[in-house]
Amino acid sequence: MNNDWPLFEVFIRSRAGLEHKHVGSVHAADARMAIEHARDVYTRRQEGVSIWVVPSAQITASDPGEAEALFEPARDKVYRHPTFYEIPEEVKNL
């Protein structure tokens, strides 16, 4: 049995031009209250200009057990990085 208000994950944009970033969670009866609680809990020192709240139950996360299957294939594709290519030093602006 759990009588807690639902849990919301909180994402804060610290200033215009930056992305929202996960900062933690709050319990609230609804989304509106979650924003108010997030304001009180996570922005007491002007840490944010915008807040997203998402019901925690709505988040689908990848399974750490599948991390290898998901992320391993990118490991040997070093040619996706610019440093893979050797360019003579005298060539500029590349």
């Binding site: 759990n2 009588n3 807690d4 933690g24 007491r44």
Partner: peptide
């Protein structure tokens, strides 16, 4: 004092990631 309350909230939130409820 409000900060202390906030610190409590950060920490309960961290504890809840381990599968216990706030309640």
């Amino acid at each position: 004092v409000q900060d202390e309350g906030g610190h409590g909230m950060y920490l309960y939130s961290a504890a809840e990631t381990l599968g216990v409820s706030r309640e």
